[in-house]
Amino acid sequence: MRRSMLFFPGNSANMLLNADFLGSDSMILDLEDAVAPTEKDSARILVRNAIRDLGYTREVIVRINPVDSPYWEKDLQTIIPVKPDMIMPTKVSCADDVKIISDYIAGLEEQLGMEVGTVKLIPLIETALGVENAYQIASSDPRVEAIFLGGEDLTADLRCKRTKEGNEIFYARSRMVMAARAAGVDVYDTPWTDVEDYEGLIKDAEFAKSLGFTGKSSISPRHVTFINEVFSPTEEEIQYARDVFATIEKAKAEGKGVVSLRGKMIDAPIVARAAQVLEAAEAMKGGR
């Protein structure tokens, strides 16, 4: 389960050393914007060695440089051999951008004797064109497990100001959720960038959750607990989900076909939702 995804600069040895202990469900090890052009080589090697040697227990996502940069192929050549869970391609604007990367990874997987399709993709959509093509991107390749909204670059492309209220990305957020759900993949929200403003963060995360986002990313370890809390099922939700299954079991035993709980018929969507809640609750056990 991914509620939170935390970004780590790929050139910070100390951060990579502790990345696994900071409470996020996924770690995004960044080779792109957090790393200056002069540091690209060393960051690549550091991230590769970290994944290879540190025994990370959380999901590892590596954010690579965009396909119009001179770095992305080298990024993949270096990182794919250590089998990250996912690659995050950047500035993805159309299905072809995904195809290029997917094909390149397939070539590497073959060379390395890995099963083709092992490494999954979570395209970062951060351009106006990307948002408009979100469904095509989300459904472009079986590797795509989720899509991810990048609010900062998007507002630059939209030529508007990024605000805390976030009205300028409301359409993009809605469109991303719609596209992801239509394609049957998960969808993750852009980070909250004011490190000290926890109230704003919680409000922003709750809003994203209300729109249908699966989880939210963060650039600050201090945000992780709040994001996890917002995107975790509440005690009441967990109890309700348990009741749903208990009611179904009881109905089965009694040979009843249609059952209701608290005056509401239990139909397929309610069962699916209850299953998601219990799965999330199980995944959270003992964690932070």
């Binding site: 502790n18 900071l22 370890p221 607990t225 932070r288």
Partner: peptide
């Protein structure tokens, strides 16, 4: 501390 590792330890 603002050090994320320190905060995990504190938690």
């Amino acid at each position: 501390t603002k050090d994320p590792v320190g905060l995990v330890i504190a938690d």
